[in-house]
Design a protein around this nucleic acid. Structure first.
Lengths: 118, 118
DNA sequence: TTATTATTTAAATAAAAACTTAAATACGAG
DNA sequence: CTCGTATTTAAGTTTTTATTTAAATAATAA
């Protein structure tokens, strides 16, 4: 996958159910690595790795406290992903509307005024 | 990645820059496979594969026309992904606000009225 | 200091993803 | 029917991911 750009990293991080579950858990509050790994029936190193992926995507922060590491969400990070997806949806439905109206005018067999622009 | 569930497939599909670019292109209108593969400096089979990923995530539709296959966006598909991400963001900022107000009350050393509800 | 708890790093492996080239299909045009 | 265009399948290779077990670190408790 290579994932050089930020957006790819964010979506790549969200693509794994365990990582989404971790984010959901963290949304309820900070947690230690151990709190997470006990919940997921997975070895600690595996969790460490998922956390690294989330961290590299900028989705979580790691803070050292005593002998534990406290994970917390990075509030600003999902924004890019949300923006891309929602602007795409807009664009998307706009093109869908164009298709709809095109079909409508075709159906009426009334060639309104050529094919506007293009 | 395994990607058994729909959401994982959607995010997994969006995780690759070429696939996002394909979606962007399709948002401007339908396209044949060839229109896409010429644009991306990639062999046709590679594109076929990316399209399969997008299709399996429910993001695009394939329609056969003459000797070409016409790809188009599936308007409803991004919704799940958008919903998850935005509800997460909400949840997210709510917990961030809780933290903020907690910090604020701590700073003021004035325990306003306990911790409203919870 | 030493033992204990919490987490990461190393090393190894299995499975999935991303590509490529070469061959196979599917259609419409002659 | 044969040919050419458009795309997909096959097969094989190289990377990347996802995980595990075992060993290494870090910080606190005794």
């Amino acid at each position: 996958m290579q994932a050089q750009d930020r957006l790819s990293k964010v979506y790549g991080a969200l693509a794994h159910p365990v990582r989404r579950a971790i984010l959901t858990q963290l949304a309820r509050g900070e947690a230690r690595v151990g709190d997470i790994s006990t919940r997921f029936d997975m070895t600690a190193p595996a969790i460490t790795n998922h956390l690294k992926v989330l961290e590299e995507a900028g989705l979580v922060n790691r803070r050292i406290a005593a002998q534990s590491r406290i994970l917390s969400l990075e509030p600003s990070a999902l924004r890019d992903g949300e923006e891309w997806i929602s602007s795409m949806r807009q664009f998307w439905s706009a093109s869908f509307d164009r298709l709809e109206s095109h079909l409508a005018s075709t159906r009426k067999a009334r060639p309104r005024k050529g094919r506007e622009g293009r």
